[in-house]
Design a protein around this nucleic acid. Structure first.
Length: 646
RNA sequence: GCCGAUGUAGCUCAGGGGUAGAGCACUUCCUUGGUAAGGAAGAGGUCAGGGGUUCAAUUCCCCUCAUAGGCUCCA
């Protein structure tokens, strides 16, 4: 007999070899029908696998992340079974579960795989799922595994087996399909009820671009059709919010082939929005003692040789610009920090001056591979809301915490409530990727960990995510649709001050080296505006939106009055426009609703006579009549509320 | 950069070896209105760019550029 401890603490005496499914059945049939896999002593295994020692047991269902993982992994096998049935002779790479769903990498040989094949695969999968084929685990020797896949002529599986140790190899079979797999899997295919093949793309075998590219087929499955439908609706909603689509519709930005790919052109509405964001941050930074600086868009190559950027990225950057006569080399600036270091050096610094905080909305240019470009989120020219703080080592932690406060204030103001701070440290396996001494790295990493420890924020640690000159605290934000974005970043840097030989005179009248903090709360204006647009679906907060109010005269008779009203609102710092087109009121309302303007004021005979406005709110409809003064107050109070100070 | 796709009017898209089509937007006129599309007329395109095949190419082929998806990358 063995002891099984359940999550609630109950301990059960069971026969050795009992399965999680057996235990689920003894609790209730309903539970047993929902068990996808089980966590035994912290390890996820098949619910149908025998347990032979004293264990803790957690039954995993669709409500557990690991349960979903199991289901989607098994779904990948089901898709492979369907694919093998439909396209005999194809070869399989890998087929894992991913954050939402799963994929399988397939070598179709000469067959050209198309979107038209999707429904065929879905139907076959549904047909196979109904058979409730059990997923059967088989331990197998390496020799047998090699023999099986040699026989099947699947070079990819053979490639995988080569790296496996004898005695650890398992196969899983369901129906007609057998795959090399360590599992775990759901008990049988009948759990998979709702199926959608989503998309296809190319993927190199083992992520190596020198190897063959396979066809990756993405899919997702759910235990209930309703959940699949909801997920597909979510994808639709994401499409509607796509900042590339909204950016076009709302006139925020555009691209031109002639200007060049990845080089955004900000249209008036977008530029207004962005300037407002910049003003907002500038005001907060002023309160925190930042000083503005401005630096040019290019810099001497030597500057980046000193900073280390040239050695690291020179070959993969825009190449140097050369002066016609002297042959001097200049680079488009990829970072603002070297310039700011030189500003620090421009005059002798005393410990009494520190911390010194130089802020600049600095536009930088980086060569991104053509396939990487994406709307405003991945571009070749962008503006960082950059600042570099130079401080004494003993000031570092406090200074770092102040920056965290600034970032949190910005997130709060812009309604990003769900975020995680990611502590990005060095790759412990590969210190060669980074510059600077181990000692400095440890100091920097500890400073971040300590500072974050004193703030009440959700944190994760990621190794290998640091910048080459220092560790970072990256803010990962979840938008309204639950998608994660990296926005702000704060970085501690002992290395650049050394490379640039930055110094200040201490109280002891000796020279000391400052520590540097790089930080960008928005990250880049381009990326931030993109994420914000998708987060609020183009319905920007009132204080930020380019046009707050549309004045809609009922007919041309009231156009003059509308103009007067416009002037009045402008005097109260309210951004408005008059829609004096020769159109009926219904039409004007529709068009301005679509432009997502927060307020509309309908103006007719009654309002003109009484000097009132009929207020209509975007998405909510008629709000009734009020005086102009009252309306101005409503707007201004709302704006003040949204931008409450740090 | 790589793979397979896409590129037709300002926008969304249809079409197809014989010198181009819709809806919306735009311009003009009519209409002067009460909370999500009033009516009519008009203008607008080197069918991404270049090369080839052909009597003839926007259509077929090749190259380049751009875009979306994914892979690799991201100071």
């Amino acid at each position: 007999m063995i002891k099984i401890t359940l999550p609630d603490g109950t301990v059960r005496e069971e026969q050795s070899g009992v399965t999680a499914l057996d235990i689920a059945k003894s609790i209730s049939e309903g539970l047993a029908r929902n068990v996808l896999s089980a966590k035994v002593n912290g390890q996820v295994i098949d619910a149908t696998r025998g347990i032979t020692e004293d264990s803790t047991l957690q039954l995993l269902t669709w409500n557990d992340k690991e349960g979903k993982d199991t289901m989607w992994h098994s779904s990948a096998h089901l898709m492979a079974e369907a694919l093998e049935a439909l396209y005999p002779g194809i070869k399989f790479g890998i087929g894992p579960n991913i954050e939402t769903g799963f994929y399988y990498d397939v070598d179709f040989g000469d067959y050209k795989f198309h979107h038209d094949d999707f429904s065929k695969i879905e139907n076959k999968m549904k047909e196979l799922a109904k058979k409730k084929s059990e997923y059967i685990r088989k331990d197998i020797s390496k020799a047998d595994a090699l023999a099986y896949f040699t026989d099947k002529d699947d070079e990819y599986k053979l490639d995988l087996i080569k790296d496996l140790e004898d005695g650890t190899i398992t196969l899983y079979q369901q129906g007609e399909f057998t795959d090399l797999c360590r599992g775990p899997h759901i008990p049988h295919t009948g759990f998979i009820k709702a199926i959608k093949v989503l998309s296809t793309s190319g993927a190199y075998w083992r992520g190596d671009e020198s190897r063959k590219q396979l066809t990756r087929i993405y899919g997702v499955t759910y235990p209930k059709q309703k959940e699949l439908t909801e997920y597909l609706e979510f994808l639709e909603e994401a499409k509607k919010r796509d900042h590339r689509k909204l950016g076009k519709e709302l006139g925020l930005f555009t691209f031109s082939e002639k200007v060049g790919s990845g080089l955004p052109l900000w249209l008036p509405k977008g530029a207004e929005l962005r300037e407002r964001l910049e003003q907002f941050l500038k005001k907060s930074q002023k309160e925190q003692g930042y000083q503005p600086v401005i630096t040019p868009h290019i810099g001497h190559k030597d500057l980046y040789v000193t900073s280390g950027h040239y050695a690291k990225y020179g070959a993969d950057s825009f190449q140097p610009i050369t002066t016609p006569h002297e042959g001097e080399e200049f680079l488009l600036k990829p970072m603002n920090c070297p310039h700011h270091c030189e500003i620090f050096k421009s005059s002798p610094r005393s410990y009494k001056d520190l911390p010194i905080r130089f802020a600049e909305f600095g536009t930088v240019y980086r060569y991104e591979q053509s396939g990487e470009l994406h709307g405003l989120t991945r571009v070749r020219g962008f503006t960082q809301d950059d600042a570099h703080l130079f401080c004494m080592p003993e000031q570092l932690k406090e200074e770092f915490k102040k920056v965290i406060d600034l970032v949190l204030y910005i997130f709060k103001t812009l309604d990003f409530e769900d975020f995680t701070a990611q502590i990005s440290l060095r790759d412990p396996e590969d210190h060669d990727k980074y510059i600077g001494s181990d000692e400095n790295w440890e100091k920097a990493e500890n400073a971040i960990i300590e500072a974050v420890g004193e703030k009440d924020i959700k944190t994760v640690v990621e190794y290998g995510e640091a910048a080459f000159y220092g560790p970072k605290l990256d803010f990962m934000v979840k938008d309204a649709l639950g998608r994660s974005w990296q926005l702000g970043t704060i970085q501690v840097d002992y290395n650049l001050p050394e490379r640039f030989e930055l110094e200040y005179t201490g109280a002891d009248n000796a020279k000391h080296r400052p520590v540097m903090i790089h930080r960008a709360p928005f990250g880049s204006m381009e990326r931030f505006v993109a994420v914000l647009t998708e987060h609020c679906a183009g319905n920007f907060p009132l204080w930020l939106t380019p046009t707050q109010v549309a004045i809609l005269p009922l007919s041309e008779k009231y156009n003059d009055h509308a103009q007067n009203l416009l002037n009045l609102l402008n005097k109260s710092d309210i951004r408005a426009l008059v829609d004096d087109r020769n159109e009926k009121i219904g039409r004007k309302i529709r068009d301005n609703e679509m432009k997502k303007i927060p307020f509309m004021l309908v103006l007719g005979e009654k309002e003109v006579a009484e000097n009132t406005v009929a207020v209509r709110k975007h998405g909510e409809g008629d709000q009734g009549v009020m005086s102009v003064e009252e309306f101005a107050k409503v707007i201004n109070e709302e704006v003040d509320r949204q931008t409450a100070s740090l």
